[in-house]
Simulated assay, not measured.
Amino acid sequence: MNTHYTEVLGHRLLKCIKEGGKIIFFGNGGFGSISDHMATEFMGRYVNNRPPLPALSLCSNSSLLTCIGNDFGFEKIFARQIEGLAKPCDVAIGLTTSGKSKNILEAFYSCQRIGCESWAITQENVNPSLQALCNNIIAIPSKETAEVQDLTMRLLHRVCAFIEKNCSSDKKCSSFRKALEYAYNGYADTLILDRDGVVNHLLPNDYVLDTSSLKLSGEFLEVAEDLAKAFKKIFIVTNQKCVGKGLLSLDALNSIHTQMLDEIKKVGGRIDDCFSATSKDLSSSEYKPKTGLSSALHEKYPDIDFLKTIVIGDSYSDYLFAENIGSTFIYCPSL
């Protein structure tokens, strides 16, 4: 496939996302599966961790498809969804080999009436009706359905990779920048950080059980020195139920934290202390959102004022923990 298509479509989708729009995929048969697949890649991830990209497939709700097909006709299964969901700031991408399917053409006609930008990915011999209804057409150099589908998947994967490479992770970095603003303005002098998902990359449905699994956030390291200069004290407060469950020893946890602190020091950052919930009683008051760890912190550092403390976390329990100790909470998306 020509890389020109990757960049043109990639730039257009990036612009759509930055302007608050969403990407809408639709197609029949195998292209319906590709529509579901690509919406998943955009909302989840392709390769890199990054914010979810707003995308949906019009092929995934079987109840809705059969309802519209039964009540309004099969040719309206996509058009009616476009009419209910699409906005002028969105981009709709229809996948069709023939370019003649009535439900595809009706969907593009709905886009035209709404003012939603439309793209078709189709075979090399473009159907004139499709050309008349669609704003932009990518013609795959083949007439064979299987090959058109394969090349379409390859193209859209490249587009997703292009967007991941070029989309910014400023949302995470902005959490730390916001904390700096509180410090610079004199509203806070202490910073409490959750570990996994904030300082260290989150391991979904897993634990960091050795130093090789430790992967510090580049966004955090980028501002670690500024945070060290702005805050009098910086702490990590983290739930480590893996110790309570017997998956990790306290010595191993301490080794992980020693390496983490050493890596932060290398970039001019600083963590003054780590407080970890490790009780075998998994309902213990030391586990966030309960306040056992904050009591331990205050006992060791009695000058800390939680009213002048920022808590940065990536979960609802972190938010509740901040609420329970009277601190200001800043949400940090787990990228």
Rank of each mutant, 00 (worst) to 15 (best):
F329G: 03
D170T: 07
C167N: 09
K229R: 12
S175D: 05
A188R: 14
T6P: 05
P289Y: 05
Y187G: 04
V198T: 08
I34W: 06
N127E: 09
A79C: 10
L202T: 11
L307H: 15
K87C: 05
E181A: 07
R177T: 13
N205K: 15
S118M: 00
V311M: 13
E75L: 01
G326P: 00
N239M: 00
E83Q: 07
S284Y: 11
D210G: 05
K288S: 05
L151W: 13
D90E: 04
L216F: 00
R45M: 12
H4P: 03
G186W: 11
H11E: 09
I68W: 02
N70P: 04
E19S: 13
I17S: 14
K233C: 06
C160F: 08
A224C: 00
P54G: 14
D226C: 10
L227C: 08
K233P: 09
L180V: 14
K300I: 04
N61T: 02
L335C: 07
P333Q: 10
K171N: 08
D303M: 12
I325M: 13
N185M: 06
F25V: 04
T6F: 03
I304T: 14
G268I: 00
S213K: 13
A120P: 01
L64K: 01
D36H: 04
C59G: 00
G186D: 12
F72Q: 12
S174K: 08
T309D: 14
K87R: 15
Y187E: 09
R113V: 08
K232L: 14
I310C: 11
L53I: 15
G69W: 04
M1D: 05
